[in-house]
Every structure is written in C-alpha cells, then in structure tokens.
Amino acid sequence: MEIIMSILAGFLFTVGLYLILTKNLIRIIIGSSVLSHGAHLLLLTMAGLKTGAPPLLGLEADTYVDPLPQALILTAIVISFGVTSFILVLGYRTYKVTGAAETDQLRGTDTDE
C-alpha cells in the first residue's frame, strides 16, 4: 500500500504542478489545491500507514499511529484552505480589474526602465 500511496502522491504532484505551469489563472489555483492534497498524502505515508489504532487514548490500544504528522497535516489543510481562498479571490479580482485570465498577459517587466 505504501508503494501505491507514494505513487498516488507523486501523481497528485504531477497533476498539480502541470496545472500550475499552465498560463490559466483558474488552473493555477486548482493546481495549488491538488498539490496540497498530494503533500498531505505524502506526509501521511511517510509516517507509516496503519501502524496502530487512531491516536485516541480512550481506545486503550497497544499501539497508535503517529499523531504528530496528523497534527501537521491538520494545520496544513487549514492553511491551504486559507491560501487557496486567498489566491482564488486574488485571481478573481485580477480578472475583474484587468480582464486578463492568463499570466503572460500580466507581465510587469515590459514597462520597466
């Protein structure tokens, strides 16, 4: 299963990055969201899968899965929500103000100097 999970995480990275590398603002936003899913799965896989019961001490199991990556991922999920919504609104607003939905229409360097 670890192999499949690693491949899945890599696959999500591939898709996310491919979307980020396009010029389209909406794709970039979706891509970053996909990328963060990949990162979460990767973290979880690296910590070891199903090595014990869920980290709830009330279950009184012998072993529990590693709680620290879960805390990390929980933080990451919430932060990525904040970031995704921010860049979504940023893209939305950019389009409204400039009418550009592609990043190469937004280059700032041409007018320099």
Partner: peptide
C-alpha cells in the same frame, strides 16, 4: 471561460512528471 482553451504541453508535463517521480521516490 479561459479553461476552454486547453492544449497539452509536453515540456510542462515532463517537468511536473519528474517532480512527481521524485516525490514518489522520496515517499518510498
């Protein structure tokens, strides 16, 4: 609407696939 225009970009795909592969190897 801009989504409508989609063209497969091989270079981008190679780059992202390499990153994905690296991630897989690290995960493993």
């Amino acid at each position: 609407d801009a989504l409508k225009e989609t063209k497969f970009h091989a270079v981008n795909f190679v780059i992202s696939a390499t990153v994905g592969l690296t991630v897989t190897l690290i995960g493993l």
